[in-house]
């Protein structure tokens, strides 16, 4: 019976690990419908976009398409965004490569962060580069600058926004190495608890003193001295918060 319970707990622990690991963002941020990027380029740019979303809570997407299947650029941009993510705070820049037109879809906090001027700058950054890879890279670089600027602008704000409540640091999850460490700590604590319970099986021991036989009210303190000897002040520097930049 205990073996079964043990197996179930281990399975749950491992299962939990994989479930939680899998809960990270898995959808596409760089939608290369026109096949302008190589596999490596796509992967690198996708990683950048994921890191931005993890850090700031804002989904920044870019879509390169040959055509918009008759939907129109704006509708197509919205469709691509909502079809890919549930994040209610985000931006998508659509480049219709066939007609060389652009459209932007923003939602939630991204509306405030990326104003018309910012969007124009980001589009120019993308457009002015000779390669698609370089253009997308520049687009994300500029997007990060705006996100960072907005983050610090909202740092002391009481407003409950994604930027102020979100974790700016990267959230790559807990490293797998912490699983054996956690198990080690758990085993130590478990060992102490169980042995503490088991030690109660021994109830035979010598008495420490005879205070139970003290005559009531018989203790009289006749001499008392509390002498200060010396003091020692230790100073330890506080760990400083590291700035991302």
């Amino acid at each position: 019976m205990t073996k079964k319970i043990f197996a179930i707990i281990i399975a749950l622990a491992i299962g939990f690990t994989f479930v939680v690991s899998a809960s990270a963002y898995t959808y596409v941020h760089v939608a290369d419908n026109a096949n302008k990027l190589s596999g490596e380029e796509f992967e690198e740019l996708e990683n950048i976009a994921v890191k931005l979303e993890n850090a700031y809570g804002i989904c920044v997407m870019l879509c390169i398409a040959d055509e918009t299947t008759g939907m129109g650029d704006e509708n197509y941009a919205e469709w691509i965004y909502t079809d890919n993510t549930d994040n209610e705070n985000g931006i998508l820049l659509l480049h219709n490569d066939g007609e060389n037109t652009y459209a932007v879809f923003t939602t939630g906090n991204a509306d405030e962060i990326f104003d018309d001027e910012a969007i124009a700058e980001m589009r120019d950054a993308y457009d002015s580069n000779d390669s698609y890879y370089g253009g997308v890279y520049d687009f994300y670089e500029l997007a990060e600058e705006y996100l960072e600027e907005a983050y610090y602008a909202n740092d002391d704000s009481d407003e409950d926004t994604v930027l102020t409540t979100g974790d700016k640091e990267e959230k790559d999850g807990v490293a797998f190495i912490w699983l054996p460490v956690s198990l080690g700590i758990g085993l130590l604590v478990g060992f102490l608890i169980i042995n503490s319970i088991a030690s109660k099986n021994k109830s035979v021991h010598m008495q420490k003193n005879a205070t139970v036989y003290t005559r009531p009210g018989s203790m009289i303190i006749t001499g008392s001295a509390d002498n200060f000897l010396y003091s020692n002040v230790e100073k330890k520097e506080k760990p400083k918060q590291e700035n991302k930049n």
Partner: peptide, 26 residues
């Protein structure tokens, strides 16, 4: 029985600790 119980409880506590680390991280 003590060893089994220690391992069982230890694994459970370890799993909870690891789970909490994930929750705090997320």
């Amino acid at each position: 029985a003590v060893t089994k119980a220690s391992l069982l409880l230890g694994a459970g506590i370890g799993a909870v600790i690891y789970g909490l680390m994930w929750l705090i991280e997320l």
